[in-house]
Nucleic acid binder design. Structure first.
Lengths: 334, 334
DNA sequence: CTGAAAGCGCTTACAG
DNA sequence: CTGAAAGCGCTTACAG
């Protein structure tokens, strides 16, 4: 068995309350005994049992982070932002992946609650977040949403302005002279996707244009972008430009367009949203709208820690970040 | 505060030992009271405090997974393999990222130990793993290495045959007629990299060839592959083929080669190792040697759970998986 | 089948 | 500055 506080107490010939105080740098303790005990602890290879401590202090110095898809490079970058800020502030982060499944999300939420994390950062799988809110009703455990802006005014979140992402991308395409612009979306019940689509529609409208293509939805996966685009190209007029709901989707769009015998950007311009690292790879050079991924994560971590430290303050903090247009080589003017 | 076993006991008018038994499906309890208590627990919104339970049972149903880089798509895929198998078997996985830093690795190791995970799966940042072994000396907590085969015969691990990866890749290049093949490596003190390099060297030798280029090392990052290749091209004869230590590196190699004014594969063939999902993207079509990424994760999870369940059995289990050559379009015969 | 009691490893008022 | 004692939420022999 591993060495406990009692073992040290015995070795040091003091009460184990004293050991506890020495180890946690309690003020009421003589420098001398403190030093002696610390040395002993080190020599005996003592590691505090955080679990036992948590039972009393109700703090675990742990943050739960739930993301839907570890396979889309977007989320790992957000996770890195969370992790680095949390780490620097003495927190450990528990990363859970739901694979876009609501039941997995529920189970992880429950597991995290059981493990008494101090706070939760979550990028929800779907639009409906009632199960998240109810899971933390009363709200002892603070939660902040990322990559998602809840309708509920009491929720804290940090997200990029999705509407603007869609608007900005479409506007760029319009300025390039495109008028037949299709939208290939991700999950149908994703609020991000819906807002991006709204931005797309409004941008068209501002140019006096109607929706020419009915919205297409699937998953936020390359394969889905590929299949949807195939379908689009077969059953419709060929658009001069396609806006994808995110970069991973855009990769699939490009694949499909080229397989169809069309060139990007010569015949069809393709645009993404997110700016995952691979988008900048020369062979791809995807024109896209960038989200400040790492910053989203850092801010979320900052907010959650602040909330953990002042539990009485329930005012929601909301951060809407600005997207940025990144012009590369998958779009051309016509 | 959240509802505890005592609250339920009071409501049900039984001792809280009975509640505990009812909830954990203990055999010695009447169906009737069990049902009543379970209903009550549900109605009152009870979640067991896993922390308190762990203190007694010494089991947390949690597996720690430590990886060096969440940003290289290779590791997320391994993580997915771990996660899905673990999840299906009732375990939660705590994912930690070390960013290739040894001190971060140490801290996470300690944190995980404090949190009393039942087992640890780790892809070590560097070759020297003495701090990992010493951290779990005595070995109450089983650990299995992934993506890495330790020299220590007592360690369990699952890894692809790195030597064969290097050999297979080089052999393919040789068969294509290449004789000037350079190697762009990752971290210098990575055992995977070293073994891949060994395979490369032996393959050359089997064709009666000497090393023409001195080994180059940096990090397992695209940027590193890019910089190393620039250096290679400036100070040496132009090789006809370059083998990269992994796919991410290979992406950087391609970038550098083309920026240098050379075509891939027309002037220089480029080969990777790993087969990350982006390698198959049509614009990239990277020829590479595939590792069974998800399977590595699944096997590791299977092994660790098995070890958790039979703590007396200390025999190490070692799995060496076979790589597979994936021919795409970045290599040509000359 | 059920209850009273001890205890997991720790922290923290309460005395002195 | 230090110790004795209670308690965090749970499980598990031990009785009955």
């Amino acid at each position: 068995m591993s060495v406990t506080i009692k073992d040290i107490a015995k070795a040091a010939n003091v009460s184990y309350a004293t050991v506890s105080r020495a180890l946690s740098d309690h003020p009421d303790i003589s420098e001398e005994t403190k030093k002696k005990i610390k040395k002993l602890a080190k020599d005996m290879g003592y590691t505090p049992n955080i679990i036992a401590r948590s039972l009393i202090t109700k703090a675990t110095k742990t943050i739960g982070l739930i993301i839907p898809d570890i396979t889309n490079p977007f989320f790992p970058e957000v996770a890195q932002g969370v992790e680095s800020y949390a780490y620097d502030n003495g927190y450990t982060v528990l990363l859970c992946t739901t694979n876009w499944q609501i039941d997995r999300e529920k189970r992880y939420l429950k597991a995290l609650r059981s493990k008494m994390v101090d706070g939760i950062i979550i990028a929800p799988a779907i639009d409906d977040i009632s199960h998240i809110i109810s899971n933390f009703n009363g709200g002892d455990t603070p939660v902040v949403f990322v990559t998602y802006s809840p309708d509920d005014p009491d929720c804290s979140f940090v997200a990029t302005d999705d509407y603007k992402c869609g608007f900005m991308a479409t506007e760029y395409l319009l300025k390039l002279g495109h008028r037949n612009i299709a939208y290939i979306g991700g999950l149908e019940n994703s609020s991000s996707d819906r807002r991006r689509f709204e931005g797309y529609r409004e941008a068209l409208k501002s140019y006096g244009l109607q929706l020419r293509y009915s919205p297409m939805h699937g998953q936020f996966k390359q394969m889905s972008g590929y299949e949807l685009t195939k379908e689009l190209l077969i059953y419709n007029d060929i658009p001069t430009a396609i806006l994808a709901g995110n970069d991973v989707l855009a990769l699939g769009v490009i694949q499909a367009v080229e397989e169809f015998g069309l060139k990007v950007p010569d015949s069809v311009s393709v645009m993404g949203i997110d700016d995952i690292s691979f988008a900048s790879f020369d062979k791809i050079s995807l024109t896209t709208v960038a989200q400040p991924k790492v910053k989203i994560g850092q801010l979320a971590a900052e907010i959650i820690i602040q909330k953990i430290n002042s539990p009485q303050d329930k005012t929601p903090v909301k951060k809407v970040l600005e997207p940025r247009l990144i012009i590369r080589r998958t779009c051309r003017s016509i």
